[in-house]
Write a protein that binds this DNA or RNA. Sequence first.
DNA 1: TTCAGCTTCATACTAAAGTACCAAATCCGG
DNA 2: CCGGATTTGGTACTTTAGTATGAAGCTGAA
Lengths: 157, 157
Amino acid sequence: MEAFHRIWKKWRHLVIYGIILGLLIISLRLLRWKYVIADQSLEIYIGIVALFFMGLGVWVAMQWFKPKSNTAEETEFIPGQEPLSIDEKALENLQLTQREQEVLGLIVKGYSNLEIAEALHLSVSTIKTHVSNLYSKLDVKRRGQAIDKARKLRIVE
Amino acid sequence: MEAFHRIWKKWRHLVIYGIILGLLIISLRLLRWKYVIADQSLEIYIGIVALFFMGLGVWVAMQWFKPKSNTAEETEFIPGQEPLSIDEKALENLQLTQREQEVLGLIVKGYSNLEIAEALHLSVSTIKTHVSNLYSKLDVKRRGQAIDKARKLRIVE
DNA sequence: TTCAGCTTCATACTAAAGTACCAAATCCGG
DNA sequence: CCGGATTTGGTACTTTAGTATGAAGCTGAA
């Protein structure tokens, strides 16, 4: 069972592709089957195909958008610092993760945990986890302190 | 009931898209009744439907992952104004009392109600009263919003 | 493959914040 | 002196915020 789990983890995507191909073939066969079956069945098959391809479209888009993580890390840094720009060095020193920076950005805008969760499509529990870790790294105890510190360190807009 | 509410809040967009999808399918069926499609072009017809719905799926996913636009009100930025000074006019318009201004000043510094009470030699009850009145005048619901609004209105340092 | 770090989510709890309503003392202008 | 606004404080309650802990999946590097 353990071996199966590992194999599944590694070849999951290939299996999904296989299932998709299988479904495609099946749908095509069903379409042929339609020639022998009553006409009204065709509507159902078209609906199935439409649903399936819409789901496929969603999945494809998710694959396209999700792994689109940091490709633009390099920010040109001109010695003469802009007084209103973000202090990249301070940001690096804090070792904040991507999510923590996102959450911090919304906290500064006055979002509640629930609003942050909805904006990022996450659960409130997750937000609380990020917020707690954030406070540890910022060495603060409360939201207001975090906002104040983030502004003083110029790690948010 | 509470759980249902949370789930609804999170997935309501998907539900709406599902309804739209259903309407589209119905319209397709109606189209088929009006324009009889020759058997030879059935495969093409199916292909078009598949492509269309896959595109629709991609679009839905894009909507789903699209970051929410920030509708927060921005302060008018008049060139002649000093960007770092306190906006006295905005302050007057709010009709904040002396105490409320003091409390607001400490709130934006990250003070808790208890800390504010100690700093001003007052009880926490009193601070809560001032804070509540403050929120009413600022038209906000939470501490973070008050901080954000106070900064945007430039009524604090 | 293994492992550390990141992300996600849950439960259970405590602490802080916030609301609603009330009431008393003070201050200040008419 | 009266009355409105301010200031102070309380009780009771609901809502958010925050902590602690555990668990699981994923990813990238060793």
